[in-house]
Design a protein around this nucleic acid. Sequence first.
DNA 1: TATGAATGAGGCTTCATTCAT
DNA 2: CATGAATGAAGCCTCATTCAT
Lengths: 221, 221, 221, 221
Amino acid sequence: MSLSKLIGVRTDEVQAKRERRKEARPGELLDAALDLFVEKGFAATRAEEVAARAGVSKGTLFLYFPSKEELFKAVVRENISGRFKEWNEEFQAFEGTTAEMVRACMTIWWERVGATKASGITKLIISEARNFPDIAAFYQQEVIAPGQDLVRRILKRGMDRGEFRVLDLDYATFSITAPMVFLIMMKHSLGACIPQDYPLDPQRYIASQVDLLLDGLQVRK
Amino acid sequence: MSLSKLIGVRTDEVQAKRERRKEARPGELLDAALDLFVEKGFAATRAEEVAARAGVSKGTLFLYFPSKEELFKAVVRENISGRFKEWNEEFQAFEGTTAEMVRACMTIWWERVGATKASGITKLIISEARNFPDIAAFYQQEVIAPGQDLVRRILKRGMDRGEFRVLDLDYATFSITAPMVFLIMMKHSLGACIPQDYPLDPQRYIASQVDLLLDGLQVRK
Amino acid sequence: MSLSKLIGVRTDEVQAKRERRKEARPGELLDAALDLFVEKGFAATRAEEVAARAGVSKGTLFLYFPSKEELFKAVVRENISGRFKEWNEEFQAFEGTTAEMVRACMTIWWERVGATKASGITKLIISEARNFPDIAAFYQQEVIAPGQDLVRRILKRGMDRGEFRVLDLDYATFSITAPMVFLIMMKHSLGACIPQDYPLDPQRYIASQVDLLLDGLQVRK
Amino acid sequence: MSLSKLIGVRTDEVQAKRERRKEARPGELLDAALDLFVEKGFAATRAEEVAARAGVSKGTLFLYFPSKEELFKAVVRENISGRFKEWNEEFQAFEGTTAEMVRACMTIWWERVGATKASGITKLIISEARNFPDIAAFYQQEVIAPGQDLVRRILKRGMDRGEFRVLDLDYATFSITAPMVFLIMMKHSLGACIPQDYPLDPQRYIASQVDLLLDGLQVRK
DNA sequence: TATGAATGAGGCTTCATTCAT
DNA sequence: CATGAATGAAGCCTCATTCAT
């Protein structure tokens, strides 16, 4: 193997690495920022700390995001993947009972969103909404509304198939979304800072919620 | 007998008046601070703004509270009412069905807490918990645990009286508390900054929650 | 004399001093800023340095001027006293020949403006005009145009009285203003940093300018 | 004979081409830098902008100039033409009256310097002199002094030939140079940023200046 | 007790300069 | 030679806190 080839390979590798880093930079910064914003809130998170956690210097952060606020917005956008279409299709193809769908919906949501770092976004937005009304509106349109729609469609299926009672769909959806949002909020607030005093097992929590949601508190006569 | 007491009536009156003013000041400051902390979060709230809203000068704020952090803690302490004993008694004396109790519990809670400014405390603590772990622990002990207990007792009554099914009491309580916390969070975040995009009528919300909670989604066979 | 009187006096004095300082603050800051802006330009002048020269801390500067740019604008406004009206009246009442008026105009201008710190403003604006177009426009309207008008009126008087030749008034005014502006520019640039290499005696300079301006270079036949 | 010379023609050619490019780069950078320094001043001009305007990357700028300050000095050095010897000769050979010489002097100066980009140097140096005293001294020696000398020689010719009055030569020179410097300053400051408010036709300006300079304001008896 | 002027540590952001490729 | 990603010192500005009155 020729020297040039060797040099070439080395250069290629290093260059690749460099380019990978360059490409990866924004992602690394967004990851670090998500962690810190969720942990401390927007104002209490220092730009330098985000940079440090991403392994770069203060200046580099501003090479990719023109301001801390833009970084915040990018973090939100980055973590709001419109996976609702995909989920819609999954549920469209679902063959079981609607009760099973509801259980699946909440369980899968926990696995794919609730348990992941992305769930921090919800906590973040609810906490900071009033300081970032445009972000809040954006989130409402991109996440909440589609989420409500998806849930609404499930409930409607239940009604249409005679499985569920006649429901006030506009508000019944909250019976599914509220427990999930609550779980996330707790996970990222009390659950994160005083776990010993606030034990909350997600699986058991969701099981209990689904169970009561489907059959209610009262005994069936 | 204290020295001040010995000095006589006139002094007492003056002192009383002085103390009344002195006592009033912190209250006005705490009110103003609660509003602003709820609205903007701890970090984004400026001490000067709190003072201005309370109608005093910046210096006066620090006369009553040695630091912004102490002000925050005082706000929380002041607004955490231990009204659970009183409520306990109310529910102890309750004569109707447990289903009625659940409905009453959530309705009354909304009237007495959810709809008032005090509800901001919950939002505040959940948002800032990780920056104030001791506050979080304090709140857990003073509010959350007693609240869960109260709810738990209601659910247990239902079980004991054969009205409710056999429940996992540790988690079933969340089916009552989670919807209430969710409502508060929304009221103070999205509901406050984008009301047009996020319509949420508390009465209808609670009605729907109670209804589903008691009877479940599924039709009764 | 009673103690309270003594205390009163002392308090009065200190208070007076304090208030004098409070009132004087902006003036002291503007003075310091004028010096530094003239000496180093806008960008190279550090806010902290201005504060230090005025004997206050960095923060105090921003108590009186919301930004460095506003400080700059205030410096300009502060030093542009519209003394043109007063001068106009002086010249209206002038009884001598118009040649004497021209000489008086330039001499008095030097004494009242050119020789003072205020002349630095002209240097400042000409140097920074392109970075502050609004300031430039403001200065044009407030200072330059009225100045040209005043000079124009003098020249017209000379023409009307048959003392001066027929002149292109729009441009002849520059024969009076240009030498003055030049003198200021030099005083605050080369004259300030290399005085030994650039000796320029203002009196002799003005005398020479007036002399030539009135009679021209060429011998009279 | 140098090594490069010994290597042969081909190398020479390549080297020449390389050097031509190498030589050209700094020129483009200096041009861009002159424009920007004149327009915004030294401090407000960003290295990256200079590079961008010259069509190279930021790094390349620092390949040719070790620092922004050195770039500034190079800009000045590059644009200070010592064309006075040449002009001296032109004027030595001049055959007309000295009045014609004065007119020619100012007209030609405008064409060859005032109207060109090179005039920016004067504005630049006067604006930045106090931040670059060595540059100021350099400019004084290389440009101002020779310029004054040239003008002085013209005036002396007028005196010697009995065309001009007896003059204070040290200061009479300013009657020629001041209007030119003034014109340049205005062109690059107010004239550049508020042209609509500050109309100044160079030709007419110079004509007026020369006219008055030669014959004075006053009517000849 | 109340004021509000003053402080200065600390955070965001810019940009000249470096250096690996 | 040329690039442009990365750096970090330095500057503007904010705001909790102090203190003389």
